[in-house]
């Protein structure tokens, strides 16, 4: 079968890495008959010569020491990273850190509001029997701040997995639906800042059930505190904070 120009070029291309090319019989016959391919081959000879000239052009050299210094600097950095990685401290993931930071901010703000409110509210309300009952925190209930501090300590020192498990445990806690009514003294009508009365179903043991309607507290401060306490009542149902 006779070879065409494309086949000839293809055969030449296949032999790029063999010098000189070893032509097949078909290629030799085609070359003898085809002036275009002879011109093309002559052009390739010029190209070969041009490439040889081009290869002879001097290329500047680069300092080995410069490269060596850069490599050693990188290796020094890597050894520092490895040394740091040897420390058995597991850092929480970024998402977990964000959640933890948000939670801490919320709890801190809530605690400040509670403290502020306790300084602000009138003596008669504090001294009212029902509220006094609310203040009687059972011995076996840990303060909220201690619990949050413990959780935060877990987040900081424990593994990310352990902290995630803690959060998941909170998610699985049952929703609080009981409505506890606390009977309190009616606040003075002229003061908008005094908390509204809170109704209690079982005044003898107000801590046994949780208050779910914290938002009934007096506005504006009471509303804020109520919202914060409602949040805490949801996530920590067994450790509701005192109302004062």
């Amino acid at each position: 079968m006779a070879m065409n120009c494309t086949d000839f070029e293809q055969e030449w291309s296949e032999q790029l890495d063999s010098t000189p090319p070893e032509w097949s019989a078909a290629a030799t016959v085609h070359l003898a008959d085809c002036a275009d391919c002879r011109r093309w081959l002559a052009l390739q000879s010029v190209m070969d010569r041009a490439i040889e000239d081009w290869k002879q052009q001097p290329i500047p050299s680069i300092s080995t020491d410069r490269i060596l210094a850069a490599i050693l600097a990188v290796q020094a950095d890597q050894s520092v990273v490895v040394a740091r990685a040897d420390v058995p401290v597991s850092r929480p993931s970024r998402a977990l850190s964000t959640i933890s930071a948000s939670l801490m901010t919320t709890v801190t703000a809530m605690t400040l509001l509670i403290v502020g409110w306790s300084f602000w509210q009138p003596d008669e309300l504090v001294k009212s029997p029902s509220v006094a009952e609310l203040e009687a925190v059972p011995e076996d209930v840990a303060p909220v701040t201690a619990t949050v501090a413990e959780f935060w300590q877990d987040v900081r020192t424990g593994s990310a997995h352990a902290a995630q498990r803690t959060v998941q445990t909170w998610d699985q806690l049952p929703t609080i639906t009981q409505r506890v009514r606390v009977t309190a003294n009616t606040p003075p009508a002229e003061s908008n800042a005094v908390p509204a009365p809170i109704e209690v179903d079982s005044p003898s043991s107000p801590r046994t059930e949780l208050i779910s309607e914290w938002s009934n507290l007096t506005r504006p401060l009471g509303q804020k505190v109520g919202t914060a306490l409602q949040f805490l009542g949801t996530v920590l149902p067994s450790e509701a904070p005192p109302a004062s």
């Binding site: 680069i62 410069r66 490269i67 850069a70 490599i71 990188v74 290796q75 890597q78």
Partner: peptide, 14 residues
């Protein structure tokens, strides 16, 4: 070319 050569070696060792 010098910069890229240096980058090449540092990357290779990394």
């Amino acid at each position: 070319a010098e910069d890229v050569t240096q980058e090449t070696f540092t990357r290779a060792f990394r």
